[in-house]
Design a protein around this nucleic acid. Structure first.
Lengths: 146, 146
DNA sequence: GTATCTGCAAATGTTTTGCACTCCA
DNA sequence: TGGAGTGCAAAACATTTGCAGATAC
């Protein structure tokens, strides 16, 4: 590990770098920053929000790169793209099917821990080959009920 | 009913006109055409598709009017706006919760007659006030499995 | 008659693309 | 070193908006 090399900087997170390698992707500073930001994040951010958050720390990052990275991560099964918010795509670091709730007042998206349908894809239903599914709830979150 | 009046034309469909009145909306040719096209339609069309379909028959119609009509119909509970397709909003003349399936190959959206979660909104779940919910399935439709 | 509705064109916001340059492996 | 990855600016879409004129009732 030599002076000034990328791998020597604190932003280089071996665990995330290996995750990218497993997907057949190069570990670039941009991708590591995006993965690190998403890791454990339950706010289900949009591409724009991720970009705004990372830009100050990583001024060279571009919105196009954020979109590109989210797309490859989704394609490799590393993250989930949510359709619950019809205004914009949102992203979830947890790639496994689970429930979401969109508050019609504040617009926030929450994970909602209720039972999922008794279904383990892939499975054939009525002739349809079901690979994945989503359950989305809409209403008012606890904070917005006041 | 006088010669040339709107109500005299065959496009004036009393049942749909009354539906609009019940929503507190005026029965215009544009709105009747949109309602008539959606009635019994299971293709879950987008605004653009509805516009393209109606334009030849009703050349004066505009895309903005299609969007506007779909929005008021949704607000009044007459139709359902689907978020299953992240590329565009799709619309369903059946306003009641039911399942949908999006084929990743052909992009078509189908109604999928499987059981819904045992939940009748509005209902409070884990502190969240749930007003409505959707269950969306993704995979390959029967025709695209070959 | 008049408030609602419409078409048009322009604006907005999100996401994608083309391309020359950069940098990870 | 070569190919994957990046930033930038422009393009492509989906959707909304402002407004003057049309029309349902």
């Amino acid at each position: 590990m030599e002076r000034g090399s990328y791998k020597g900087r604190k932003e280089y997170i071996p665990a995330l770098a290996e995750k990218l390698k497993r997907f057949g992707l190069r570990a670039t500073p941009q991708r590591l920053a995006i993965l690190a930001f998403l890791e454990g994040n339950t706010s289900h951010p949009s591409a724009e929000e991720i970009f705004r958050e990372l830009k100050p720390r990583l001024p060279s990052i571009s919105l196009a790169t954020v979109y590109g990275t989210l797309e490859v991560l989704r394609r490799e099964g590393g993250i989930q793209e949510l359709t619950i918010d019809s205004e914009r795509k949102r992203f979830d670091p947890n790639p496994k099917p689970h429930n979401h709730f969109l508050c019609r007042n504040c617009g926030r998206v929450y994970d909602l821990p209720v039972g999922l349908p008794a279904l383990t894809p892939p499975k054939k239903i009525e002739g349809f080959w079901v690979e994945t599914f989503t359950v989305d709830f809409y209403g008012l979150c606890p904070a917005c009920q006041k």
